[in-house]
């Protein structure tokens, strides 16, 4: 499903070149749930961005759904992502100008899905927000916003879901409920899950854990 070989990301800073990631090799199989764990600055989010094709590595290769992402331009990578990849972010990334249901409809509309509104409503009902359809993000609590984001992520029934610190901005009780929902949907829809977190408890719910330290995998690559 996803594979990375000898992946590296180097940036230039005032003090010279800095390796954010180096020599990362990993393989994630269809239907697997994988947690990428590490402290702040360990390169977790950078790795997630590279695996999802949101950014290009300076070294190595990434394959996603049988496509070599590193050989494609930005539009090519977007084509691979379209419909196959879903995202959940720490900062929710809901568009403030759109209501809850419109945020969920957006990927469906972009893909030209037939009944985007019906599908979006059903998803929001599934995540327990039937009463919040027409609310703008600013009128929703953090937990509610993240549930909208999860509904949006699953809208196109993606084969892979990338989640970047999905509970990072939530208190622990709310975070736990959001995570329950995430894993329920993941199981229901047999999605491959790649989850970035610094929370060991959350990571322990994934089948496999990959530890990053200083931009390198310290164990768990497979």
């Amino acid at each position: 499903m996803i594979s990375a070989t000898n992946l590296g990301k180097r940036v230039l800073t005032a003090e010279g070149a800095l390796d954010i990631l180096a020599g990362v090799n990993l393989e994630i199989k269809t239907g697997e749930s994988v947690a990428i764990i590490g402290v702040s600055g360990s390169g977790k989010s950078t790795l997630l961005g590279l695996l999802a094709g949101l950014d290009l590595p300076t070294d190595g290769e990434v394959w996603l759904s049988g496509e070599r992402l590193t050989a494609l331009d930005e539009d090519g990578r977007a084509r691979v992502r379209a419909g196959a990849v879903g995202f959940v972010f720490q900062s929710f990334q809901l568009l403030p100008g759109l209501t809850a249901i419109e945020n969920v409809m957006l990927p469906l509309e972009l893909a030209g899905a037939p009944d985007s509104e019906g599908a979006a409503r059903a998803l929001l009902e599934r995540v327990g927000l039937a009463e919040r359809l027409t609310h703008y993000p600013r009128a929703l609590s953090g937990g509610e916003q993240q549930r909208v984001a999860i509904a949006r992520a699953f809208a196109l029934r993606p084969a892979i879901l990338f989640a970047d610190e999905p509970t990072g901005n939530l208190d622990s009780a709310t975070g736990a409920r959001v995570i329950d929902l995430l894993f329920e949907l993941n199981t229901e829809r047999r999605t491959t899950l790649v989850l970035v977190t610094h929370d060991d408890e959350l990571a322990s719910r994934c089948a496999r854990r990959i530890y990053l330290h200083g931009g390198r995998i310290v164990n768990g690559a497979g």
Partner: peptide, 12 residues
């Protein structure tokens, strides 16, 4: 943000 999200969702 909208544009980034759309790109993320696969828009060219």
């Amino acid at each position: 943000d909208m544009s980034a999200m759309l790109r993320c969702l696969g828009a060219s």
